[in-house]
Structures are given as C-alpha cells and as structure tokens.
Amino acid sequence: MEGWDVNTKSTVAKIPLLTTRAGPRDGELWTQRRKEEFMALIKYMEMNKAKDSDWFRIAPNADGTKWKGKCWYVHNLLKYEFDLQFDIPVTYPATAPELELPELDGKTAKMYRGGKICLTIHFKPLWAKNCPRFGIAHALCLGLGPWLAAEVPHLVDTGVIQHKEKQSQSSSGP
C-alpha cells in the first residue's frame, strides 16, 4: 500500500469492504453489489463529514452505471470545485472505474483524453489484488483524493485554473 500518504491509507482501511463480485450485467447480483457500494459510500461520507474533510458529491443514474457529481479542493483558503463523472465498466469490479474531470480536460498532463485522470502505477495492482472487496468509495479515496491534492495546487500556481470568485471578480470588477 505504498504510494499513498498515511492519512489516505488509514482512511481507506476504515471504509467497509465489499463482498459481492458482480457487474452491471449481473442482474440481481448487481443490485446486491450496488447496495454494498452505497453502504461503503455512506460510511466514507460519514467519516469525511466527521473529519471535516467533505470533498465530493455524487449521485448514480437509475441502473447505477453512470455516476455524476462534483468534487472540490481547498487551497489557500479558496475552494476549487470541479464536475466529476464516471461510468461503471462492464467488467466491473475487475476493472476500476475511470474517474473524469471534464473541466480540466487538456489542462494537465496527468489526464487522459476526455478528462480521465491518470492514477499512480500503484493503483491498478492494488485494485486487482483487492477485487471484489474495493468499491467506488475506495476508488475515490485512493484515486481522486490524492490526485486533487497533488494537481490542484500545481494547476493554481501555474495559473491554469482560477478561482471562480476571482474569475467573477476580475470579470465583473473593472
């Protein structure tokens, strides 16, 4: 589990593990899986709220294959918010979901075409090793959280992204 900071690791360890190995095409099992996914997400969300580190909102579509929402990061007392979306692949849970930040598409090198974020080399083996126990919550915790913490300050510093208030201020100011 190297490659992540201590905080992340401890948090991940606290998220309940999933048991059902089922993808979107598995019918009833998928429902079971979705239940487990929700329980894990609820727990993770509660943990985040308790630690005052709430950083995302997501909601699934009807069959639970497409998830949409927002995520944000506080840097220098400024909150940078981005749209978040991802699909559950057919091979799920063997394949991890690809998290997309479409706003930042083309703005950083740590991103595939279409706004999919590049994860560390450690992510995939870890995910494979923990299939089917890791779910969406784990993916967010181990993938997007660290990515945001690493990229947002860099992007802000390089001026690639700007705070919305400032944008509005600068646009509405003079």
């Binding site: 997400l41 609820i42 969300m45 308790a50 005052d52 709430d54």
Partner: peptide, 24 residues
C-alpha cells in the same frame, strides 16, 4: 428497483447532505 437499494441511495444522499462538523 429494489426498495432496499433505494433506501440506501436515499441514505447516501442524506449522508451527503448532512452538515459536516467543523474542525479547526
């Protein structure tokens, strides 16, 4: 749709909406 699932989804939304405790 499974009621239980819906219930869970609702719980998740609730959890998301819940006010986070402020820590300094």
């Amino acid at each position: 749709m499974d009621a239980e699932l819906q219930e869970l989804q609702r719980l998740f939304e609730q959890a998301q909406e819940a006010k986070p405790s402020v820590r300094l």
